[in-house]
Design a protein around this nucleic acid. Structure first.
Lengths: 131, 131
DNA sequence: TCGAACCTTCACATTGATGAGAAGGTCAAG
DNA sequence: CTTGACCTTCTCATCAATGTGAAGGTTCGA
């Protein structure tokens, strides 16, 4: 598949796909004429990367956890070094902390919105009521 | 409290605190001599903001959900307009989507790390085994 | 008085993109 | 085979967001 087609299928742009390649997020082959040649699986991979970026993860972190996200899940045995394991554990725990923070704040926003909707109905907010 | 003290108590820098003020994330009074004068509650607020930024939320979103995070939780009745409610619901749902994405990927990283550790023990990974 | 802390303001760095230009490849119609 | 539309290549420039650094001046506190 060429770059234009992948851009279309992932709702991105050729420019962005070249950028991701430059950043080491995707690996891309070349055709005889020098054009980039994309595997079908890149559609899912790029979509996945977009999701992670939109979730606020920086590319350097995404780059490091990419091997974890391969589908079909295959273990890269060369990764089983203490250093890589420690790095990934760090990333794993960082993700857990992010999730905690976002979960707490999601709850706070949800509560607040619920209370606001009570106000909008002309009702005093009642801590014991649902939405 | 002056800027240096708040910086110390929040493990940030005076520079960053001025930046947050400039971005509208915190509101700061002034002493007669022109020095910034920070309320004690800013310690918690700044810590909270740091957490949200580290979790990947952009300042413009944080700015909008700040009223939801006040402690003690007080409803700003003026916020009970359909527009503000709709905006906050959008933010709330965006947070939920972020949490979903991060949760899925946290699980993937955790699984992968678990498998790697099996490899590191010289054992073939077994899908049915725990960490 | 003197150094530390504060003030404002301008400039720079990094990240995640995006735009524009110049050059060349591909392919179908004429 | 040539033309033209459309694709690709690369490179340089630009943008917004999140900070950081430093210059030049004021105020504090010992």
């Amino acid at each position: 598949m060429r770059i234009g087609q992948l851009a279309e299928r992932t709702e991105t742009t050729p420019r962005l796909l070249r950028y991701y390649e430059e950043q080491g997020l995707i690996r891309v082959g070349r055709a005889a004429n020098g054009y980039r040649d994309y595997d079908d699986r890149l559609v899912d991979q790029v979509t996945h990367i977009r999701g992670l970026l939109e979730a606020g993860l920086p590319t350097r972190l995404i780059k490091q956890i990419l091997p974890c996200l391969d589908d079909p899940r295959e273990i890269h045995f060369a990764d089983a070094t203490p250093e890589i394991i420690a790095t990934l554990e760090g990333h794993r725990d960082q993700l857990a902390r992010r999730i905690e923070v976002l979960t707490r704040n999601h709850a706070a926003v949800a509560d607040y919105v619920g209370a606001l909707k009570q106000c909008a109905l002309g009702v005093e907010p009642d801590p014991a009521s649902g939405d």
